[in-house]
Amino acid sequence: MTRILIASVTICAALAAPAFANPIERACLSSDRPSASRVLCACIGEAADRTLTRADMRLGARFFRDPEEAQRVQLSDTPRDEAIWQRWRNFGEMAEAMCR
C-alpha cells in the first residue's frame, strides 16, 4: 500500500510540474521548437528564475509567441526597454552556460 501511495504522489508531482513552472519554462514547453524538451525547458526556466523578475518573465514569454515584440524591445531607446533588454541578454548568457 505504501508503495502505491508513493508511486501515486510521484506521478502526480511529475504531471503537475508544468503548473509550477515559471512563464519562461511554460512558454518553452508550449513552443513548437523541436529541441524544446522538458529537461531543456526546466533548465531555461531555472536560468530565468536566477536572472529575471516575474514581470520580465511574462514579457519574455510573449517573445516566444511574438518575436516581433522582442525586436521592438531590443530596438527601443527608452531606458526601461534598454534595462529589460540587458536583463534578457544576461538571462540568455546564463541559460546558454547552464543548459548546454
Score class of each variant (00 low, 15 high):
residue 1 M to H: 11
residue 1 M to Q: 09
residue 3 R to T: 04
residue 3 R to G: 07
residue 7 A to L: 13
residue 7 A to Y: 09
residue 8 S to M: 12
residue 9 V to K: 07
residue 10 T to F: 11
residue 14 A to H: 08
residue 15 L to Y: 10
residue 15 L to T: 12
residue 16 A to G: 14
residue 18 P to F: 07
residue 18 P to T: 06
residue 18 P to Y: 09
residue 21 A to E: 04
residue 25 E to F: 05
residue 27 A to E: 03
residue 29 L to T: 05
residue 33 R to L: 10
residue 33 R to I: 11
residue 33 R to D: 13
residue 34 P to D: 13
residue 35 S to E: 13
residue 38 R to S: 10
residue 38 R to W: 10
residue 39 V to H: 11
residue 39 V to G: 03
residue 39 V to I: 14
residue 40 L to D: 03
residue 40 L to S: 10
residue 42 A to P: 00
residue 42 A to H: 10
residue 43 C to D: 06
residue 47 A to N: 03
residue 48 A to K: 01
residue 51 T to Y: 02
residue 52 L to D: 02
residue 57 M to Y: 09
residue 57 M to R: 03
residue 58 R to P: 00
residue 59 L to R: 10
residue 61 A to V: 04
residue 62 R to C: 04
residue 62 R to T: 09
residue 63 F to C: 08
residue 64 F to E: 02
residue 65 R to N: 12
residue 66 D to R: 10
residue 67 P to K: 04
residue 69 E to M: 06
residue 69 E to C: 01
residue 71 Q to G: 03
residue 72 R to L: 05
residue 73 V to S: 02
residue 73 V to N: 01
residue 74 Q to K: 09
residue 76 S to W: 04
residue 78 T to P: 01
residue 81 D to A: 07
residue 82 E to L: 10
residue 82 E to P: 01
residue 83 A to S: 15
residue 85 W to A: 02
residue 85 W to E: 05
residue 87 R to D: 06
residue 88 W to K: 02
residue 89 R to M: 05
residue 89 R to K: 14
residue 91 F to D: 01
residue 92 G to K: 02
residue 92 G to I: 03
residue 92 G to S: 15
residue 92 G to C: 05
residue 93 E to G: 13
residue 94 M to N: 08
residue 94 M to L: 15
residue 94 M to S: 12
residue 95 A to D: 01
residue 96 E to A: 14
residue 97 A to L: 09
residue 97 A to T: 14
residue 97 A to V: 09
residue 99 C to Q: 06
residue 100 R to F: 13
